[in-house]
């Protein structure tokens, strides 16, 4: 998809931030999901952002952001000793994902702030465009 105007730039940046907010929400939602083995345990998700330039030939500096992929972080889950838990393995251990709520909250605040910034840019530029269309009246 090509980048033609400011709505493409800011709109796609907003979708990227929205994906980031969604991964944070999934991480927080699964913070207390208990698994029966190390492999089954949930691992925190993070989106990978990449710049997409409007043009590779002309150097006009206009660029937006794309989510290249969503990776799960390679963090070993916490091992808890709970022999009476329904999912406990033969040694009596259960596995809790290694999710840090503070870290997720900071990520969430940053994403929502940057989402708002992009929205503000679109609002401001839209007003300016509307005024420009009234030029000479």
């Amino acid at each position: 998809m090509s980048i033609r105007n400011i709505f493409d730039v800011s709109g796609r940046a907003m979708s990227a931030q929205m994906i980031r907010l969604n991964t944070t929400a999934s991480n927080l939602a699964n913070a207390n999901t208990i698994a029966g083995s190390k492999e089954e345990a949930f691992r925190p998700l993070r989106p990978v952002f990449a710049t997409e330039y409007a043009s590779k030939i002309q150097d006009n500096g206009i660029a937006t952001v794309n989510v290249e992929q969503i990776v799960s972080l390679d963090r070993d889950p916490n091992q808890l000793y709970a022999p009476d838990h329904a999912k406990a393995d033969k040694d009596g251990y259960v596995y809790q994902p290694n999710i840090n709520p503070e870290e997720e909250m900071v990520e969430m605040m940053e994403a929502s702030r940057q989402y708002q910034n992009n929205l503000q840019v679109v609002n401001t530029l839209r007003t300016l465009m509307a005024r420009t269309m009234q030029m000479g009246k």
Binding site: G61, A63, V65, Q114, N117, N118, V121, L125
Partner: peptide, 8 residues
């Protein structure tokens, strides 16, 4: 606007 879009 491109800079703000790529803040992260």
């Amino acid at each position: 606007a491109s800079n703000i879009a790529n803040a992260a």
